[in-house]
Amino acid sequence: MGQDRLDNKVKKVLSERKIQPNQDSWNKLEALLDTKDERPKRNYAYYAIAASVMLLLGMLFFLNSNKEQEQETQLVNETENEIKTIPDSGLVINDENEETNVVEATETVENAIASEDKTINNEQIDKQSIEKKSVEVKQNRRFAENQKKVEKEEVKEQNRSNPLIKNEVNLNKTSLAENEKKKQDSLALNNEVDALLALAQENLKKETKTENTINTTTTALKVNPDALLTEVEEEAEESFRAKVFEAVKKGFKKTKTAVATRNDN
């Protein structure tokens, strides 16, 4: 038998052969297919859900942060105005807060000018009224002193008219004079102290009044007291928020530069 004939015969005999596999062979294959089919589908679904949830949260956070930022910028505008209206407050306006819209800025500047005028007027009125009050107080004190002097003079005259008791009176007089002198000294001191105290109090009042007038002027312009209160509360939180956003900005810039210069090395 030749080589090719042997090959052909073997091929012919064997190629006609069929071997029936076990009945559960398909089940084995199906089990294999099932496990492979389900795994990736489940994984993909899980990853898809996770990714979408993350995306949603990210979007929400982003939108919220944007809103907060807008609010903050508005607040900053208002606070800027307030700061501007205080003439000798000595506060420095932050450069960061100057990133505001030009339109908003012009509007607020106009408002600020208006409120400034009003506050200046109020301050002037306050000062005038305070001066008046201090003058009145001084006048009253002088009046009281004059009255006392008049009484003393009357007592002297009475003493002169009664010579019998002159000695006693003289004694009393000297003591009285001493007492009066002392009293006068103490009164003068008291008056000075009172005047100084009054001045200090007035200065304090002035400061508080100017602050109040700022608030009252702003409320008179457009804001209600509740809004002002909430603004003040938010201002307290603002510094923290500003820090957070600053940190985020820095991080973003860092990564940006890192990505940009990744091929430079």
């Binding site: 052969r17 069929k18 596999p21 398909w26």
Partner: peptide, 11 residues
């Protein structure tokens, strides 16, 4: 497909 080809493939 499996049932159609399995006997020959097993061979």
């Amino acid at each position: 497909l499996y049932e159609l080809h399995a006997p020959k493939m097993l061979s």
